Amino acid sequence: MTTELTLFSAFIAGLVGSVHCIGMCGGIVGLLTMSLPDNVRQSYLRLIPYLLTYNIGRISSYIIAGVLMGFLGAQFSQMLPLENPRVVAMWVSGLFMIALGLYIGAWWQALTVLEKGGSYLWRKIEPLGRRFLPVKHPLQALGLGLVWGWLPCGLVYAILVFALTSNSAWNGGLLMLAFGLGTLPMLLTMGATAQWFTQFAQKLIVRRIAGFVVILFGLMIFLPHHH
């Protein structure tokens, strides 16, 4: 499995999967923008520093989680009596990518089990985020992003499994960075654009197309690659 394909898959999963994120993260971005002073909210130029710092915080949390998962995966694969742990890792990440596509397309909601598990941890972290509200400064938005990056989300968890199979802390961090960058366009525009965009992105046909794209990437992982 080439690293480029894996990183590109993570980026595409972030890009098309952020359609699904709108329901969850959209509320948070709404909360962030609604707590800002009127003069900031009414000007997209003034809003940009807040949206950028919030998203830098969120993606930083993804990278930290990816580094941890990559490191744990590398340690774990050394302990397993497998001849080629990379092949096993490839199969696991491919299958997870397909599950992720089915989840985004609303065909199969198995990843909600992961979200339920994560919600226990989230109950411990969530009160920290409230300390940064109402947001009056971009640094507070950064802090809010760092905390809200741990919000339980099947999409994030699926890419974290990807990171777990990446075989190193560095690769795990890179994967989550690629995924985070993929989610940026949707979350940056959402902080500023009207409600119609959210409604469009949540249409079943849009989710199905996005899910189908991610499934294709999952299947591509199983194709033989030439190094």
Score class of each variant (00 low, 15 high):
Val161Pro: 03
Phe8Cys: 11
Phe11Glu: 01
Leu111Ile: 12
Phe217Asn: 12
Thr198Tyr: 00
Gly172Met: 11
Cys21Tyr: 05
Val206Gly: 04
Met190Trp: 15
Met97Ala: 12
Pro49Thr: 13
Gly73Tyr: 03
Pro224Ile: 08
Ile205Arg: 05
Leu177Pro: 06
Asn39His: 14
Gly66Glu: 08
Phe222Leu: 14
Gln202Leu: 14
Gly23Ala: 15
Val206Leu: 13
Ser43Phe: 02
Gln199Trp: 06
Phe200Pro: 12
Tyr120Gln: 14
Glu115Arg: 03
Leu223Asn: 00
Lys124Asp: 02
Ala194Asp: 11
Trp91Gly: 12
Ile209Gly: 13
Ala89Thr: 05
Ala110Gly: 12
Leu5Ser: 09
Arg130Trp: 00
Ile215Phe: 04
Lys124Arg: 13
Asn171Trp: 02
Met220Ala: 11
Gly101Met: 08
Glu4Thr: 11
Lys116Arg: 12
Ala163Phe: 09
Leu204Glu: 07
Asn39Met: 09
Leu181Asp: 04
Leu45Asp: 06
Leu175Gly: 09
Leu174Trp: 14
Trp150Gly: 11
Ala65Asn: 00
Arg86Ile: 05
Leu95Arg: 02
Ala194Tyr: 11
Phe76Leu: 13
Gly27Met: 09
Pro85Gly: 05
Gly180Ser: 10
Met176Tyr: 01
Val19Trp: 00
Gly73Gln: 06
Ile159Trp: 05
Gly118Tyr: 01
Gln78His: 07
Arg58Ser: 08
Met24His: 04
Gly180Cys: 08
Leu174Ser: 13
Ser77Gln: 12
Gln199Ser: 14
Met24Leu: 14
Gly23Asp: 03
Gly30Thr: 14
Gly57Met: 13
Leu47Gln: 15
Lys124Gln: 09
Arg46Ser: 13
Ile215Lys: 02
Val87Lys: 10
Arg58Lys: 10
Ala13Gln: 01
Gly117Thr: 14
Met220Leu: 10
Val40Thr: 13
Trp107Tyr: 09
Gly173Asp: 06
Ser77Gly: 00
Trp196Gly: 00
Asn55Cys: 04
Ala99Pro: 00
Thr193Pro: 02
Met79Gly: 01
Ile98His: 03
Asn167Phe: 02
Thr112Trp: 14
Gln109Pro: 00
Leu82Lys: 02
Phe71Val: 06
Arg46Trp: 00
Thr2Arg: 14
Ala158Asn: 09
Gly173Ser: 06
Ala158Tyr: 13
Gly14Ser: 05
Trp148Cys: 04
Ile59Gly: 02
Ala169Ile: 15
Phe162Glu: 03
Val88Pro: 02
Leu187Asn: 11
Arg58Ala: 11
Ser18Ala: 15
Leu7Ala: 03
Trp150Arg: 10
Leu133Glu: 05
Ser93Asp: 01
Thr6Glu: 03
His137Asp: 12
Gln78Glu: 10
Trp108Arg: 07
Ile221His: 07
Phe162Leu: 15
Phe71Thr: 08
